Amino acid sequence: MSHSSNPQPRALATWLLAVALLVGVIVGIGGITRLTESGLSITEWKPVTGTLPPLNEAQWQVEFEAYQQIGEFQQVAGPQGMTLADYKFIYFWEWFHRLLGRVIGLAFALPLAWFWLRGAIPAGYKPRLLALLALGGLQGALGWLMVRSGLNTQMTDVSHFWLSAHLVTALFTLGGLIWTARDLLHLHAESSAAAARLSPLALVTLVILFIQLLLGAWVAGLNAGHASDTWPLMSGQLLPQAGWDRGVLHAFTHDPFLLHWLHRWWAWVAVAALVVLARHSKAAGDRPASVMVHSAFGIQIILGIATVMTGVALWLAVAHQVVGALLVAATAWAANRLGWRQRAGS
């Protein structure tokens, strides 16, 4: 039985921003997991018992032997001479990634229940918070489906489609957390403030950014970052030699050279849209949001070029993914400000 209604929008916003920070961290850990080829190291999903890693050598051998049954070990890691010590290294990153996912789930679900029982959730926000909780559950399910796609003797990696679904859902959740936190902060400042609307400009910008994020996820899943280590040309050419023999659709969804090229140059379409959104956000009275958007995409471009020219150096690639998450957060912030201003003026 809940207590009498006592809305606490600022406390809720602080909580959601803390969860958003955790989501940003797990995006970075996910990047490390992918780049160290750790994602297939744990071949089972054990929601409860999987919280603990192997505790003795016998348990480690069981896990290692299970990993040896899949294509990644048989075709890549095994021929390269992987030892048990090597396996423990990749196991750690996948285990830590899954553990942090559980922590985020608890960090969202338990405070949500507490705020709910205290009557602290403002009117109209319960469905949105439940939707964010459902997105978190979906994210976990997509993560396991992604891993399962690579647990066979034919594959040496996970499906880039499942990887993109896993990553983009995480970033969508991050944007939802930021948007909702901003709405709650507006409500704290003005008790009659209505939730922001998604303006046409923000919608177009978010669609363009979504395409860029999807391309980036496919590039990551296909290891297409290695298609070229030069900038701006690829192998001395402006346009890459794409494989069209299996059809246009296959080329646009599987060809590493074409996807690498598209991810490079669609970025500038995204930049143009983000500049317009940031300027409108500044005009709506939120200069910090504009600065955050400009800073995020500027750093992201530099990191992207550096990642390419260093042959996908691990820490640069991870930083590129983390700043991508920061860019999503900044874009959601700016879009919310613009939508709130338009709603207030309507």
Rank of each mutant, 00 (worst) to 15 (best):
F115W: 01
A131H: 08
L117E: 01
L209F: 15
H320N: 05
D255F: 09
V293L: 04
A284F: 04
F252Y: 13
V318I: 12
A85N: 10
V207C: 12
S199E: 08
A296G: 15
Q237I: 13
A196H: 09
P53H: 02
V48G: 13
I29E: 07
W60A: 00
A170D: 03
A251L: 05
G150C: 00
G137Q: 03
A13Y: 04
K282H: 11
I208H: 12
H320Y: 03
L145C: 06
A330M: 01
Q69V: 08
G175D: 02
S281F: 05
Q80W: 06
P54I: 00
I211R: 04
E57G: 11
I26R: 12
L177R: 01
Q69G: 05
L214S: 10
D245I: 06
L106Q: 08
F89K: 11
T36E: 06
G71E: 05
R287C: 09
L214N: 07
L238F: 15
F64I: 09
A123G: 14
A123K: 15
L100Q: 11
H188L: 00
G298T: 03
A284H: 02
K46Q: 12
S290K: 07
W144R: 02
L327Q: 10
R337H: 15
W45F: 13
M146Y: 07
A58K: 08
I104Q: 08
M292Q: 15
W261Q: 13
T156L: 03
L238I: 14
L52E: 05
P240H: 08
W162Y: 10
P79N: 08
G150A: 06
W93Y: 10
W266I: 04
V103S: 11
S199H: 05
T173W: 15
G140L: 04
S192D: 14
G136V: 05
G30S: 04
G137V: 08
E57A: 15
R287Y: 08
A202L: 07
T156H: 01
V219Q: 06
W45H: 09
P256Q: 10
A270H: 00
S149R: 06
W116H: 03
K88P: 11
L138I: 09
W231G: 10
V276A: 15
H320E: 04
R10N: 05
R264L: 10
T83N: 12
S2D: 07
V62N: 00
H294R: 11
L185I: 11
A189P: 06
L84A: 03
W15V: 04
Q80F: 02
T36Q: 02
L327Y: 09
Q69D: 06
S192V: 09
V158T: 13
V48Q: 09
R246G: 03
V308S: 07
Y67D: 02
P111E: 03
H250F: 14
L233C: 05
L16D: 03
P232T: 13
G71M: 05
H160N: 06
A181F: 01
L129C: 02
W116E: 00
A123C: 12
L209I: 12
S295T: 15
L198W: 07
W340C: 02
